[in-house]
Design a protein around this nucleic acid. Structure first.
Lengths: 337, 337
DNA sequence: CTGTTAGCGCTTTCAC
DNA sequence: GTGAAAGCGCTAACAG
């Protein structure tokens, strides 16, 4: 670890010019002779001069850093999301400071203050469920990534449409007795997803059984291990983590997917490809969402946008077995094979 | 988004005191009457005063921010690692700026400059394979997380011992014809892991077949789909991603794990629990490594440390089938039983 | 116990 | 084309 790094003043003195001139040369402000600018840049490179960020931030009031607040890094989706945001940020020359709300409203509020105090230029927030972001109280531009139903939302997947696609797929296969793993009751995202499903189910005269829970592999496995399967032919989960756990819980009981029960997830994590059988699920366009959120946060663009999602068909869904159809209590229907 | 946030000068003027007094009050430097300090703090809270970080950083030369450079966020281990680092940092009141080397030496060098320029107090680097970190060239304290064999390493798992444990486990089960999925040839970590394995295999008179490759689920699947299985009873991978892909590739051919082939991984990702069968693998103590790296980076502790790893036994390993032991050459895989 | 002063490194007028 | 000077918000040293 060498001594103090060179400052702009060091460069200026070494060349017998003023700091302003060095500044202009380094930032290509063209207000000086190309020859001198070249010499300055050469020396800067030689001394490995790196502009001190704090000085620039103090002077300009901008730090080329944004904050990102996620609800809980323990959930597998959020690291991926953070990566997408980081990529979008880097393409704009902006760094990202990440804060974790730890799943609580207090944690979220604390992270907002923490990041704002660190001088971020803008904030991207994926809100913790059950909280509302009041952008008017935050002294930097804010982009919110949540759901279309969230007031002040900036960028979101069309979760409701994803739910519709899942439900349409299951109905098309002939399922009528369906378990909905709805995730947490106070999450707007899972609410949108399940509302989309229920809307399509209702149109087909189907009322799914609904089960609310925290979102985790373990919880999915627990439910899969103990749920009453009588009559059930399909399970639609609001999150891959739940679906993957559910499949694992079923497997432990010897229940086969999709022969005995079809299962769908939501998010298209790598998990969905790894579990056996690979999961039919819904893919979000995280890169597009991240890009829009960043564009809004940095003032490039304005307005909320909703992004399409895509149903990914894999091996976890199939037609229900005929015997299952007959097992149901009151809604039987002669089906085509 | 409200107007300009209050500065220390605003507080000072509102109360008719000097900025220094406000500073002292807010940081509990006890140099003023408790009564006045209370009034100052009350006003600060009321106005939602948040100290401007850039000013403090410029003045003190410290930013309470560290940098973390990971080789490639696309690899599933690194988001988890980053999380562990962030946790260790937060417990010290330090924020983390994350940089991604994108797998290249140039990307790594660029990220170092970028983060240093942003005024980090210290740097934690997980080096990209094939690169050497020269801490003497970096103007802040550096902690390196790589392998025991890396010069300048600060914190690492005992990868070699993990390799030994895997090999011992497989030999104990009776395997003698083993495929080693060694990962990239120039990675010190995979080198340590496989060296540990080979050391124990050699002692038992076993020379495994070795296959180098990039580390990815897809590559594992590809190898699993096409590898010659004649005589093979076990596969030890240097990474879970390879092992999980390998299992998936085998499954597509109808080869069963562990009945036909035992498989082991390394890292104990969630993936290892999700794949079927769940993977015998080696768990690193990421939290301990992260904590030590941070302690060294912040000057709390000194010296390199090596952390124990733990073999996690799951369902992907079993004794080889008797018929496999006798099989010498070019047999098709055993028929269904 | 409290206030004054100086200056961290940079960018931005404005004057030469 | 180039330099001088001011000041961003904060804290450390020193003076009262």
């Amino acid at each position: 670890m060498p001594g103090k790094p060179p400052s702009m003043l060091d460069l200026a003195r070494a060349l017998g010019v003023s700091r302003a001139t060095v500044s202009n040369a380094l930032r290509g402000k063209g207000r000086l002779s190309p020859e001198l600018a070249g010499r300055i840049r050469a020396l800067a490179a030689e001394l490995r001069y790196i502009p001190a960020h704090a000085g620039r931030a103090l002077r300009t009031g901008r730090s080329a850093t944004i904050g990102l607040i996620v609800p809980d890094f323990g959930q597998p989706l959020f690291p991926i999301f953070a990566q997408a945001i980081e990529r979008a940020a880097k393409s704009r020359g902006v760094a990202v400071l990440v804060g974790d709300s730890l799943g609580t409203a207090d944690g979220q509020a604390a992270e907002i203050d923490n990041l704002v105090g660190r001088g971020i230029d803008a904030l991207v927030i994926i809100p913790t469920r059950g909280t509302l972001i009041d952008a008017a109280k935050i002294p930097v531009p804010v982009a919110v990534i949540d759901s279309a139903a969230t007031r002040g939302n900036t960028a979101a997947s069309n979760h409701r449409d994803g739910g519709r696609q899942v439900a349409g797929h299951l109905i098309g296969l002939g399922h009528r007795d369906i378990l909905l793993l709805a995730g947490p009751k106070d999450s707007k995202v899972s609410r949108e997803r399940t509302d989309g499903m229920r809307e399509v189910f209702a149109r087909a005269g189907i009322t799914p059984r609904i089960r609310y829970s925290v979102t985790s592999f373990e919880m999915g496995a627990e439910i899969g291990a103990e749920v009453d399967l009588a009559g059930l032919t399909a399970c639609a989960a609001a999150y891959d983590a739940l679906a993957v756990g559910f499949v694992t819980g079923l497997a432990a009981r010897g229940v086969r997917v999709p022969q005995d029960v079809s299962v769908t997830g939501f998010d298209d994590l790598m998990w969905a490809r790894i579990v056996s059988p690979p999961l039919t699920t819904v893919r979000q366009d995280l890169a597009a969402i991240a890009d829009h959120a960043l564009a809004v946060a940095t003032g490039e663009r304005q307005g909320a946008r909703l992004f399409p999602v895509e149903l990914v068909l894999r091996a976890s869904t199939a037609r229900p077995r005929p015997c299952d159809r007959n097992r149901t209590n009151d809604n039987r229907r002669g089906g085509a094979s």
